[in-house]
Simulated scan of single mutants.
Amino acid sequence: MPTLLARLEAAAQLDRIADVVRRLAQATAGRGRLGDVLHGRTIGHPLHPAVVQFPVGAWMSTAVLDALPGRDTPGSRRAAATLLAAGTAGAVPAAVTGLADYATLSPQQRRVALVHAAANVTALGCFVASLAARARGDHRRGRALSFAGLGVAGAGAYLGGHLAFALGAGANHAAAALPLVPSGWHRLDAVSAIAEGKLSAYTVGETPVVVYRDHDRFSALVGRCAHLSGPLAEGRTVDVGGEACVECPWHGSVFRLADGRALRGPASSDQTALRTRVRDGQLEVAQP
């Protein structure tokens, strides 16, 4: 299986379709306030993995009822059909949130996500066909289609797990860089050498750090964007509601420099901030 996944990640022939889907995602669900909601910025982590629990749970419950000895009683048939319909309806918000996340994936991630989405669309087709068969009274065929759909959805879920855990889609990349900051306080630079109102780039251990000076106040953020490790030091400072912020140069996530708060997506997590202090005219930083 790892070999097959590696081949899928490297399947450049999928890029033509993947790029079309990305443009569709960017045009419909990947930007603005709606995009922030769909990415999960308002709850502090990606929304898609949470939303998919409802349809998957409903479909699995349908399979349990379809496998029980009393599956052919009118009550069991109604319950199974109701759960199946609820899960199918719940697939709509799951698909929309997934489409929003797709808009900013890397090429390697998009290839896997494309097959993940194709599997889920196929599964959804099986569930819709199952509902139609049950409505006609062909419950045996309806059950068979539901089991087939659940199997295909399981394959799609496997690819989704690979996206999240092996390829880091949706992960907080800034938090992953924090353990590379050695413990204790670390001297960065003389206060007099740090320009006011501009981004200054440093490295602590193996972790890039972005420093911002506002008169005598200093803030320091991990320099890898929480979304996909974009170089924040190469971004630009922007004003949002009177607050100085940094905009990631890769996908446009905006973080408040004072504390790393994510104000605009696609990043759903806040940017990790370090503690700062001034000792003997030198700016020092430490882990939170």
Rank of each mutant, 00 (worst) to 15 (best):
A86H: 01
D259W: 10
G151Y: 01
T237R: 14
R213L: 03
C248W: 08
A201V: 14
T42V: 09
C248V: 13
S229Q: 10
P49Y: 09
V238S: 05
W185G: 09
E247Q: 15
G40V: 04
L163A: 02
R22W: 00
R143S: 14
Q109A: 13
T28I: 01
P288R: 08
V96S: 08
L188R: 07
V238R: 12
A81T: 07
V20R: 12
G252K: 00
P179E: 06
A6Q: 14
L4C: 11
D239E: 15
G75K: 04
T237F: 06
G235N: 02
S200L: 05
A177L: 04
D214E: 12
R256F: 04
H39G: 11
A25V: 09
L47C: 15
A195Y: 09
G281F: 07
G75M: 05
P93N: 01
T82H: 14
C248E: 06
G70C: 03
E9R: 13
H162R: 14
V121R: 03
V238P: 11
A157M: 05
A94I: 07
A220R: 02
L228F: 11
P182E: 08
V181N: 11
Y102D: 08
T82N: 15
S269Q: 13
F255V: 02
V21T: 10
G151R: 02
S253W: 07
A133H: 01
F147Q: 08
S106H: 08
T276W: 03
G125V: 04
A195E: 15
L47F: 15
D15L: 03
A155E: 09
A171T: 08
R256S: 10
H116R: 02
R275T: 10
S253G: 13
H251D: 12
G265I: 11
D72E: 01
D101F: 03
G35K: 03
P55F: 05
H251Q: 11
R236F: 07
L145Y: 01
A193N: 14
A12H: 13
S130R: 00
A94F: 09
L114V: 04
